[in-house]
């Protein structure tokens, strides 16, 4: 690679974040365009609703704009923004007092199997769009844990910390979420 090519490389997230903190709105717009989809996707998956996801995405970037000076570059910018987004979604849940309910309300295992009555046909490959749609149909408590664990890759220890629940609760919500998704997906393809 020649020097000229190196020089024309797009600025890194860290560079853009620093410039944004110094008041460079063009830099902030670049960050916005670079991360818009990731932020919206996370909001949409956690909320299950496009209108709310749009509002939340706007909130996240507003918050980001105000907070960007506190980004120290210790973690990757994407990790930092991910945390900020999850926190905004959780704060939103609390504000609209629809915080995911982790008690017994959704506590029953959604699938009862009785030997012989369960359709033994295995699901073929799941269409990604079908899975996205099924996730939106989960109860909020299941959805939050499923998105954080299976989509975003957090472990139960982190999720327990993020949501303020026990690891056992996180585990059991995840299991129920997966079973519920299976039920939804099977109904869709039946």
């Amino acid at each position: 690679m020649t020097t000229a090519e190196v020089e024309t490389q797009p600025p890194s997230d860290v560079e853009l974040a620093r410039a944004s903190a110094a008041g460079d709105t063009n830099a902030f717009e670049q960050l916005y365009r670079r991360h818009f989809r990731r932020v919206y996707a996370l909001c949409f998956r956690m909320l299950g609703n496009p209108t709310e996801a749009e509002d939340l995405t706007q909130d996240v970037f507003t918050h980001l704009f105000n907070k960007i000076g506190s980004f120290r570059g210790e973690s990757a910018f994407t990790t930092w923004l991910h945390r900020l987004t999850v926190n905004q979604v959780l704060m939103y849940f609390r504000r609209r007092s629809a915080r995911p309910e982790f008690t017994t309300e959704e506590g029953e295992t959604p699938v009862q199997i009785v030997r012989g009555t369960e359709n033994p046909n295995k699901m073929p490959i799941i269409d990604r769009i079908a899975l996205e749609r099924a996730i939106t149909q989960l109860p909020p408590g299941y959805r939050t844990v499923f998105v954080l664990h299976d989509v975003e890759g957090h472990d139960h220890d982190e999720i327990a910390h993020i949501l303020g629940v026990s690891e056992g609760t996180s585990k059991s919500q995840l299991h129920k979420a997966r079973l519920k998704l299976r039920q939804i997906l099977r109904q869709q393809t039946a």
């Binding site: 919206y40 295995k122 799941i126 990604r128 989509v151 299976r182």
Partner: peptide
């Protein structure tokens, strides 16, 4: 059969993490 389905769900979910074209 259930294990197979759960496994398929989990493996598809992992793909969603980097797949941003599956939503509008």
């Amino acid at each position: 059969g259930i294990l197979h389905d759960l496994d398929t769900i989990v493996r598809t979910a992992v793909i969603l993490r980097s797949e941003t074209n599956s939503i509008t």
